[in-house]
Computed example of a mutant assay.
Amino acid sequence: MGGMGPAPKPEGRKARRNKDTVPQTVLRWERAEAPELPDFRIEKGDQLVEFYWPQRTREWWQKWIDSPQAEHFGSSDWEYLLDTAVIHARYWLGNLSLAGELRLRVAEFGATPSSRARLRMVFAEADDADQGRGSSGVPSARERYGNLRQIRGGKTDEGTSSP
Rank of each mutant, 00 (worst) to 15 (best):
4 M>R: 09
122 V>Q: 12
135 S>A: 09
87 I>R: 11
75 S>L: 11
157 D>C: 08
118 R>Q: 15
41 R>P: 08
99 A>H: 11
40 F>V: 02
159 G>K: 02
101 E>I: 13
55 Q>G: 11
25 T>A: 14
134 G>I: 01
145 Y>P: 02
6 P>G: 13
92 W>Y: 11
143 E>Y: 00
98 L>I: 14
158 E>D: 15
114 S>T: 07
64 W>R: 01
19 K>P: 04
161 S>F: 12
25 T>Q: 09
43 E>N: 14
19 K>V: 05
14 K>H: 00
160 T>C: 09
32 A>V: 04
66 D>A: 01
56 R>M: 14
44 K>G: 10
64 W>H: 03
42 I>H: 06
10 P>F: 07
55 Q>F: 12
42 I>C: 04
94 G>K: 03
26 V>Y: 12
86 V>F: 07
116 R>N: 05
140 S>N: 01
85 A>E: 01
118 R>K: 13
101 E>V: 10
163 P>T: 03
159 G>W: 05
84 T>L: 15
96 L>F: 14
35 P>E: 02
141 A>Y: 07
6 P>E: 08
102 L>E: 03
130 D>Q: 10
132 G>K: 00
28 R>I: 15
85 A>G: 00
70 A>E: 00
103 R>L: 14
103 R>A: 15
17 R>N: 07
58 R>S: 08
79 E>T: 11
119 L>I: 04
25 T>F: 09
63 K>N: 08
32 A>S: 05
158 E>Y: 14
37 L>R: 02
7 A>S: 15
77 D>T: 03
123 F>Q: 01
20 D>F: 15
44 K>H: 13
13 R>M: 11
92 W>Q: 15
24 Q>E: 12
23 P>I: 03
93 L>K: 04
41 R>L: 14
